[in-house]
């Protein structure tokens, strides 16, 4: 019972933070709220037993993303979002309401949260839970799948990050050195 109360409270906090992010116009405040949002979601992942995901989200989502965004507003010197004039204000709202309603309709058939009989728990997951220790010797199943069964996928992920790092360097690395020499470069620390 207590974990359901925690679950619902944290999810409600997440929703409130998201609404605040949409409504506030000061970019610094938005980025700080986004850090809070990421930490709340990391807490949510701990509650839902996904501990590996939780610490990745806390370190990468709340940590590095927030630093990168702060570096961006420091470089662009834009502190406030301008209220856009002449945009049709009801159209985006209508689009999201319609899409949201369709998606909620889609959830009505999904098995309830935590249902052990759901098809997702019955297919290949039991294989990994039973066989990962005898086959790889790693007690943490997530690590076993990530580094052993799906090692090549993880290698591909490294390529993706490498490509993104190179692209960031090409976009702002060289240019900034020419225009403002000797300045601390914020966008490169992800490479």
């Amino acid at each position: 019972m207590i974990d359901i109360v925690i679950d619902i409270t944290l999810l409600t906090f997440l929703a409130i933070t998201a609404v605040a992010i949409v409504r506030i116009t000061n970019l610094f405040a938005i980025i700080m709220l986004f850090g809070i949002f990421s930490f709340l979601s990391a807490t949510m992942f701990v509650v839902m037993d996904a501990v590996d995901v939780a610490f990745t989200e806390a370190a990468v989502g709340a940590g590095i993303s927030t630093v990168l965004m702060l570096a961006t507003i420091a470089l662009t010197k834009d502190q406030n979002e301008k209220q856009s004039v002449g945009r049709i204000s009801w159209l985006p709202l209508a689009v999201v309401t319609l899409t949201g309603t369709a998606l909620v309709y889609g959830t009505l058939d999904i098995p309830a949260f935590g249902d052990p009989e759901a098809p997702a728990q019955k297919h290949v997951a039991p294989y990994y839970i039973e066989r990962s220790v005898p086959e790889t010797g790693v007690p943490n199943i997530v690590t076993a799948v990530l580094a052993s069964y799906r090692g090549f996928d993880t290698l591909g992920e490294v390529f993706v990050i490498f490509t993104a790092g190179i692209a960031v360097l090409l976009l702002i690395g060289d240019k900034r050195r020419k225009s403002t020499p000797g300045r601390n470069e914020g966008g490169e620390n992800d490479a």
Binding site: A71, T154, D190
Partner: peptide, 28 residues
């Protein structure tokens, strides 16, 4: 708990930060 979605999302978080960094570099 089912470990497979955890593995998928672990990858997605890291790739998400890479795309965020690229987007922010474009903004600069």
């Amino acid at each position: 708990s089912n470990p497979l979605p955890h593995v998928l999302i672990l990858t997605a978080i890291v790739v998400g930060v890479a795309t965020t960094a690229l987007g922010l570099a474009l903004v600069v």
